[in-house]
Every structure is written in structure tokens, then in C-alpha cells.
């Protein structure tokens, strides 16, 4: 088991380095001169050129990338153009807010999605099942930022029940979490349902029934564990969607997280901030996937025994 974890951790490193390479390469092509941005549009030519030399902007791409990588590994992503604070600190300080939001969304999604998916599957063709499927379909079809706006419209503007912005206590988490979590809840519901339906059709369920096992136990003990295995993987992948979707939700709800920081930076063309944010989120995503893989190995004895 430990071998498995260590192996996966080691595989993580080249992936992350690869991510930095890709994202850096992309951002490298951003038009606009960082030196100009810092000194201002009207700065004299020689000053700009001098700053460019200092910042190493005239070096070939590979050199610049390696320099970037070296610094990144030390946690140095440069300084923000405007605030002059280290970019890394800016991103990292916003992270807890994003994590709070994403986790809330995920918990909501799982808490709703799995039970409903199970019930739907065991009552296939019933009215409940049909309603669930329709709602799940709607959930997947809604842009989450639109849902956020509609929720704000209803609960904040018209009903005045919930705050519409900022991270100011539990009440302010509700609407954003629902916004972010609905799409994922819908996906988890569908996934759980189809996985359960698939499992219930299996021969070993028939064996359990032929043994005289009560239906309840057949579902909860025999079917569930098998059905949840693929769902766990999907949950991990959905976390990536949550991290990405947080960008939009944080904008709608003025939530002080990494996503909102990114959007501001984009507007002002602060590439280091965008760069750092994307890499940071990717690293978090990779770690989450790693945890999911480990959990998966725990659940499925076929994987567990490979690494005994």
C-alpha cells in the first residue's frame, strides 16, 4: 500500500513540472511588456530597456523558463506589479476562501447526489426517478454563474434573506455553495444512479438474492460498495471543475478567493498573478486526484492486493 502511495507521489512531480512548462509557455505569449506596465506608458525608452535587461526579459525562452522554475520551486513568483507584494503570498492568502467555497460545494453535491442517485436507482421507472432525472438534467444544463445570479435575484434582491456577496460568515456561504455545487450534484446523481443500475444487474447480486439475503441488505451491503467505486473517481475529477468554476462563482458573489484575484489580474494584464494562480490551482487539483486514487485503492480490493 505504501509502495502505491509513494509511486503516485513520485509521478506527481513530473506532471507538475509539465504544468508549469505549459502554463508558462502560454503566458509567455501574452502581448504587452511587463517593464512598460511597471514604469507606465510614458516612461522613457532607455529606462524601459534597462528594466527589461534587469528582469531578464531579453533572454531566450528556455532560460527565462528555467529561471522561472527555479524561483517557483522556492515559492517566488515575482512581485505583483501594483502592490509590490510577493505574488505567491497574494495567491496563497486567497486560497483558504476558495478552498472553503469549493469544499462546501463538494460536500453539498455529494450529500445530495449520492443518496438521491441510490434511491433513484432502486426505484427505477417510478415518478421519483423521473423527477430526479429531469432535475439532474437541468442541473447539468445551467451555467453556474447564471444560477448564482438567479439565486441572488430571488434570495437577496427580492426576498432579502441572504447576503449577496463577500465572505461574511456562514450565511454568505450558502448561495455561493449552492451555485457551485448544483452542477456537480447533478453529475454525481446521474453517475451514482447509472453505476447502481449497472451493479444491480450483475450476477453476484442475483447470487445474493438466491441466498435469501433481504433486499435492503442486498442494496446496502452488496451493491453499494461496488457502485461507489467509479463514483469516487468522478468526484475527484469534479473537484477540478469546482476549482475552475470557482472563478465564475467568486466573481458573481464577490467572494475573496483565488478565482476573483485571477479575474482582476486578467483585467489589468498582470500575467504573473494569472500564471501563479493557474499553476497553484493545478497543483491543488493534482493532490486531490492523488488522494482520490488512494481512496479508490482502499475501496477496491482488486487494486489493494496488487500492492500487498
Amino acid at each position: 500500500m505504501h509502495k502505491y502511495i509513494i509511486r503516485r507521489l513520485l509521478m506527481l512531480i513530473p506532471v507538475i513540472i509539465g504544468v508549469t512548462f505549459i502554463v508558462y509557455s502560454i503566458m509567455f505569449f501574452t502581448p504587452g511588456d511587463p517593464a512598460l506596465i511597471i514604469l507606465g506608458e510614458n516612461a522613457p525608452e532607455e529606462q524601459v530597456e534597462k528594466l527589461r535587461e534587469e528582469m531578464g526579459l531579453n533572454d531566450p525562452f528556455i532560460i527565462q523558463y528555467l529561471r522561472f522554475l527555479k524561483n517557483a520551486l522556492k515559492g517566488d513568483f515575482g512581485r505583483s506589479y501594483s502592490t509590490r507584494k510577493p505574488v505567491f503570498n497574494e495567491v496563497f492568502s486567497r486560497f483558504p476562501a476558495t478552498l472553503k467555497l469549493s469544499t462546501a460545494g463538494l460536500l453539498l453535491a455529494v450529500a445530495i447526489g449520492i443518496p438521491i442517485g441510490i434511491i433513484s436507482a432502486t426505484r427505477q421507472y417510478s415518478l421519483l426517478d423521473s423527477i430526479t432525472m429531469v432535475l439532474a438534467l437541468l442541473g447539468v444544463s445551467m451555467p453556474n454563474f447564471w444560477l448564482g445570479l438567479m439565486l441572488i435575484l430571488l434570495f437577496s434582491v427580492r426576498l432579502g434573506l441572504l447576503p449577496s456577496g463577500g465572505d461574511v460568515g456562514f450565511a454568505s456561504l450558502i448561495l455561493p455553495a449552492i451555485t457551485l455545487g448544483t452542477g456537480v450534484a447533478a453529475i454525481i446523481t446521474r453517475m451514482t444512479r447509472s453505476s447502481m443500475l449497472e451493479v444491480i444487474r450483475q450476477d453476484y447480486i442475483r447470487t445474493a438474492r438466491a441466498k435469501g439475503v433481504a433486499e435492503r441488505r442486498v442494496i446496502n451491503k452488496h451493491a453499494l460498495k461496488n457502485a461507489l467505486i467509479p463514483v469516487v473517481t468522478v468526484i475527484g475529477l469534479q473537484f477540478g471543475y469546482l476549482l475552475g468554476g470557482a472563478v465564475l462563482t467568486e466573481t458573481v458573489f464577490s467572494w475573496p478567493g483565488v478565482g476573483r484575484l485571477m479575474v482582476e489580474a486578467i483585467k489589468q494584464k498582470y500575467t504573473p498573478v494569472v500564471l501563479a494562480s493557474v499553476i497553484f490551482m493545478s497543483v491543488v487539483f493534482s493532490i486531490v486526484n492523488l488522494l482520490v486514487d488512494i481512496l479508490y485503492a482502499f475501496l477496491d480490493p482488486r487494486i489493494k492486493s496488487q500492492y500487498r
Partner: peptide
């Protein structure tokens, strides 16, 4: 496939954001 794995480590919306930010 390793290259694809690297791409998949980046949430796709963020990747799209990065590209559009860079290219305009």
C-alpha cells in the same frame, strides 16, 4: 499520454482562460 495527463492536471476552464489571456 503523459502529455495528455499534464494537460488534464489543469482544470480546463483555467487552461482556456490562460490561453485567451495570452492571445487576446
Amino acid at each position: 499520454m503523459r502529455a495528455m495527463d499534464i494537460f488534464l492536471a489543469i482544470p480546463s476552464i483555467l487552461l482556456a482562460i490562460a490561453i485567451v489571456t495570452a492571445l487576446g
